[in-house]
Design a protein around this nucleic acid. Sequence first.
DNA 1: TAGATGACTCACA
DNA 2: ATGTGAGCCATCT
Length: 105
Amino acid sequence: MNSSFDKEKLYNLLTRIPKGRVVTYGQLARMLGNKFWAQSVGNALHTNPDGEKYPCYKVVNSKGKLSTAYAFGGLDEQRRRLEAEEIVVVEGKVDLKRYGCEVWE
DNA sequence: TAGATGACTCACA
DNA sequence: ATGTGAGCCATCT
C-alpha cells in the first residue's frame, strides 16, 4: 500500500519523545518507515508550527544542531526549552551521544 | 504538469 | 572543520 507520509504519526512520535531527550529528523523518518522522509519531516514541522502543542524543539538534525528557522520564539527560546528538560545546549547544539535517543518505549 | 525550494542525511575532498 | 555533490520526500509556485 502507499505508506505515505503521515503528519499524525509524526506528531504522535513527537509527543512520545521521552523527557530530557532529543531526536533527529532521520530518526523520526526511520520510525515512520522511510529514512528519506527526513526532509519531509522538517518541512511538515515548518508548515505546521504546532510548537505550542508539539515538542518540535526536541527535533534536531543528525549533527545535533538545532533548527535555524525555528518557527516560534527563536533559537534562544528553543535552547531555553531544552535546558528546561536538563538538556545541555552548546553552541546551539546538543550532545546526541547523551540526549539522542535511538528508540524509546 | 514540471520546476524550484527546504527545519535533511550521507559521502567525499 | 568547511564545502560540494548526490539522493529521496512533500509542498509551493
